[in-house]
Amino acid sequence: MKILGTAAGVAALLASVAVAEIIEPTNVSFEDGAIATSLTGTPGDPAEGRDIVGNKKKGNCVACHQVSDLAEIPFHGEIGPMLDGAGDRWSEAELRGIVANAKVMFEDSMMPSFYKTEGFIRPGNAYTGEAADDTFGPILTAQQIEDVVAYLATLKD
């Protein structure tokens, strides 16, 4: 009976833990280009972030950036800064802001806004080459942003 009561208590505790709500792209709060608060309340997964950074159908960061840790992926770009040492150059909040919308911190940046849904002149549907439809959303989800931030934070000099 004691085990059953303990199990019920654990279940009640888990059920009472507040599930953090996802901050929608239109509600993101920037301070000097940084986003201090997690977009999901869930820690990012560096392994997932690594996949997103290197995957040409997801984040496609390697189209513009070089990353030594992703040497197995061909054709890194040279438009953006090298991402080696990103975890030393910027805080987690700054990395989150840069990935979500680099133009807030770096006004003249050519980097796409990965977590934005408004204010575009001619939005496209992610990397499909087609025009946006009524399901238009950000390029990356809030959790994908957190995953990329977690990965970039591991890139130390």
Rank of each mutant, 00 (worst) to 15 (best):
K116S: 09
V67R: 08
W90Q: 08
K57R: 11
D84H: 10
T154N: 07
F106S: 11
G5E: 07
A131M: 08
I73G: 07
M1H: 09
L83I: 02
L13W: 06
G137C: 12
Q66E: 08
N27A: 15
I79Y: 13
T117I: 15
P74Q: 03
I121Q: 14
I145M: 08
V19E: 14
K2E: 10
Q144D: 07
I52R: 00
N101K: 14
I22R: 15
Q143A: 05
A86M: 09
D134W: 02
A71E: 13
E48S: 15
R122D: 07
T135K: 04
E146T: 11
F114V: 02
K156G: 00
I23P: 02
A8R: 12
I121P: 03
G97M: 00
W90D: 04
E130T: 09
A7R: 10
A131R: 10
L155Q: 08
T42A: 12
D134Q: 06
A20I: 13
K2C: 05
A11N: 10
T26W: 09
R50K: 06
I52S: 02
L152F: 07
V28F: 08
S29E: 11
P25V: 09
L95G: 03
G85P: 01
A11I: 13
P112V: 03
E31K: 01
D88Q: 04
A93K: 11
A8Q: 12
G77L: 03
A15I: 02
A7N: 07
Y115T: 02
T42D: 09
R122Y: 01
E92I: 03
S113H: 08
D147T: 01
P138W: 12
M1K: 11
G87W: 09
L70V: 03
V149P: 06
K56V: 00
E78A: 06
V67C: 11
T141G: 14
A7L: 14
P138T: 15
P81Q: 10
D51G: 06
A102C: 15
E78F: 08
K156E: 00
L39E: 01
K2H: 11
I121E: 15
V67D: 10
N125G: 06
D84L: 03
G124S: 12
A12S: 06
C61I: 00
S38W: 06
A7K: 09
S68M: 04
V19G: 12
I145Q: 09
I98H: 11
E146A: 06
A12G: 01
T26A: 13
G9T: 00
D69E: 09
D133G: 14
E24D: 13
G137A: 15
C64Q: 10
K56P: 06
I23H: 05
